[in-house]
Amino acid sequence: MSQITWKDDRALLATLQGKIATWGTILRICIEERLVYRGDFALGTLMRFLPIVTQIFLWGSIFQNVAGKIAGYTYDNIIAYYLLTMVARAFSSMPGLASGIAGEIRDGSVKKYLIQPIDMIGFLLLNRVAHKLVYYGVAIGPFALVFFLCRSFFPSAPPMETIIAFSASLFMSFLLGFFLEAAIGLIGFWFLEVSSLLFVYMLFNFFFSGHMFPLDVLPYPWNYVFEAMPLQYLAYFPAAVWLGKIEGDQLISALWIEAAWILFFIVICRVAFRRGVRRYSGFGG
């Protein structure tokens, strides 16, 4: 799939083993690079839970006046929901990916992917996998601590099928998050400055992914708006799956729709990169 863009077809002749070795090396280098800032990472992870603290108190005050449930959520459900979206975001959020791609296009360093037999999207994907692996390695501590402290908010463990569906939704949220953001970054081939566009995307992402509140709390016309968007899979969907809000056939079809969205953005990335490279002109050294 990635050969299409290679300028140098020597890599095409390389054995599968050689390719795996190359990607393995890239992955290792990326992991080592990431580990340099592990202190920064651990601190960052722990801090990311601070807004949950305010949510616990805010919803606590709200539920003091509400008997029972809000749109099917008890107080415990809501807090469990926020914690689960943190897990989902740990998979789906891609800090700096789109801006990084756009930046490389702008300052011309994108050239290195054009002259080396390395596919840009593939390289960035591995880079991100390395980033995430290191992140989970470091973040597992803070996550375990917070989930242990907040264990009372969670209902008893869901059935095995739900756990499998949850894991699948997390894995797919990583892919969806990656290809969606990469596609946005590639817009940089057409518009040199995409920072304001990224900001708009970030806003919509925060709201429509369900990071701000459970999307099914929204009243009638709005729930259809968010259901039509791929963003819900980045945070809301995995959390709703764990909490048993989406089950049975509905769950299966939602997972297929998510897979279709991933495919859609993979194609978009490929097409955008091909066309973008054709448009791109680099000058000087």
Binding site: D40, M47, P51
Partner: peptide, 26 residues
């Protein structure tokens, strides 16, 4: 040298200021 986390820290700390102080109780 690199303090992305500490700068983000500002957002996380000031997040506490965004709500009425009465909510911090139980």
């Amino acid at each position: 040298g690199r303090n992305q986390s500490l700068y983000n820290f500002w957002f996380y700390i000031t997040n506490f200021s965004r709500y009425p102080m009465e909510i911090y109780g139980g």
